[in-house]
Design a protein around this nucleic acid. Structure first.
Length: 372
RNA sequence: UCCAUUGUGGUGUAUUGGUAGCAUACCAGACUGUGGAUCUGGAGGGCCGGGUUCAAUUCUCGGCAAUGGAC
């Protein structure tokens, strides 16, 4: 269940609560990605201490390893990984972009190569729904076909059409599974449409009509221009029922999140903070810095002078730079910690700003300070 | 002290009597429903001195240095 708790009167931003089987997640939120049941380099305790209320894993990857049966035997995903907050699971739709995993697709489903066993596996919308409910996710995502933004109109039409057919199949399979298992689980639909206005609107309408527990916008932030991406969001958001949680998949960067929130988006997931941390790109209140550069070798300041995270309170840029040069793995944890902390803090500030009706002001203030 | 071998970017290595390649490290970009990876640019070199030659990093002589061996 989703409940709006406040609305900004200058922008489309709003705060809300996503009520799940494992607590309430305050929106807008950004989910750290835990594809293999771990947010790379961070502990569950650290996530809780940062105020993370929801993470996202990946049912397709988990189906391959360690397997759905195994997770069930271990008491479900929450117990197994010992994270008692909200957990989303993605469907595997995005993995069709991975040449290493993706084999072929038809209306029936998708063939993937299991990288752990080398075997061919076949995923249908029905199978994905079963996997997600058996894993024990709080929020399941529909299986979609994600056309790449660099593909053309024909591909967008084709993929969107298939996404719609699969959304219907997911919906009815899910209803039946809930009945058979006697369990409740939220299910989010995903709208596609490439970069085409009509197709985006049509897709949003189709997904909206199926009355999911939440609606997602997929297939964006894949190299298209920011302008094109936010246009797609602009087309789709007004189509969705205002009372439903809106989820922009794969976003993102602080800038993108602020923009999307102002357009009324409630949920995000992204590897941006963690992957950039591993690549030594550090998010700070003054913009992104590349901490592996020689100019930080003797910099005694913390990563971000305005950050009160454990890493910033403890270590200097110079020390972290040294660990990077020495290829000490521990530094990946420190950098990941800071970046995730930074983004979680950002979302907290966004929520407060919306509640105090000064989101626009906060957004402008943040963006103007991003000049490293 | 003698003998042998070898001296090419910071490091490790190719090739060649006629434009000196590669890897890594370095500098700079990219990265948004996770490969830590990968990709794309950039800068950087013939131990020193003589000889042969139109031309030497290459052939030759000497010096210096390194490594191995002998005493």
């Amino acid at each position: 269940m989703f409940k709006i708790t406040s609305e900004d009167n200058e922008t489309g931003a709003r705060t809300g609560q996503l009520h799940t089987a494992h607590g309430i997640a305050q929106t807008p939120f950004l989910m750290p990605v835990a594809t293999k049941m771990t947010v790379k380099y961070l502990t569950q305790t650290e996530l809780l201490n940062m105020g993370v209320e929801s993470i996202i894993s990946n049912s397709m990857i988990l189906t391959m390893a360690p397997g759905v049966e195994h997770i069930k035997e271990m008491g479900g995903i929450h117990k197994f990984m010992n994270f008692n907050k909200c957990i989303f699971t993605d469907s595997g739709g995005f993995q069709m972009q991975s040449p290493k995993l993706f084999l072929s697709i038809s209306d029936r489903g998708v063939h993937f190569r299991d990288p752990f066993s080398g075997k061919k596996t076949f995923l249908t919308p029905e199978a994905v729904m079963k996997n997600e409910i058996e894993i024990g996710a709080d929020v399941a995502m529909c299986l979609d076909q994600m056309p790449h933004t660099t593909q053309g109109q024909e591909d967008w039409i084709q993929a969107t059409k298939r996404t719609h057919a699969w959304a219907e199949r997911c919906k009815s399979a899910h209803r039946l599974l809930e009945y058979n298992y006697g369990e409740k689980q939220m299910l989010f639909g995903i709208a596609q449409g490439g970069l085409d206005k009509k197709l985006r609107i049509k897709s949003a309408e189709f997904i909206e009509k199926l009355n999911f527990d939440g609606v997602a916008m997929g297939g964006l932030c894949l190299g298209e221009s920011k302008e094109a991406m936010f246009k797609a969001v602009d087309y789709q958001v007004p189509v969705f029922n205002k009372e439903k949680a809106r989820y922009l998949m794969g976003v993102g960067s602080p800038e993108d999140i602020l923009e999307a929130v102002s357009k009324g988006v409630d949920c995000f997931d992204s590897i941006y903070p963690t992957q950039n941390a591993r690549h030594c790109n550090i998010l700070t209140s003054k913009g992104t810095i590349k901490i592996d550069r020689g100019k930080y070798a003797k910099d005694t300041k913390p990563l971000d002078e305005n950050c009160d995270c454990e890493v910033c309170k403890t270590y200097s840029r110079a020390y972290l730079y040294h660990l990077i040069r020495m290829k000490e793995k521990s530094v990946l944890r420190h950098l990941s910690y800071h970046n995730v902390y930074f983004t979680q803090k950002l979302l907290q500030k966004i929520r407060v700003a919306i509640k105090e009706n000064r989101f626009k002001e906060y957004k402008d203030e943040f963006l103007s300070s991003q000049t490293p």
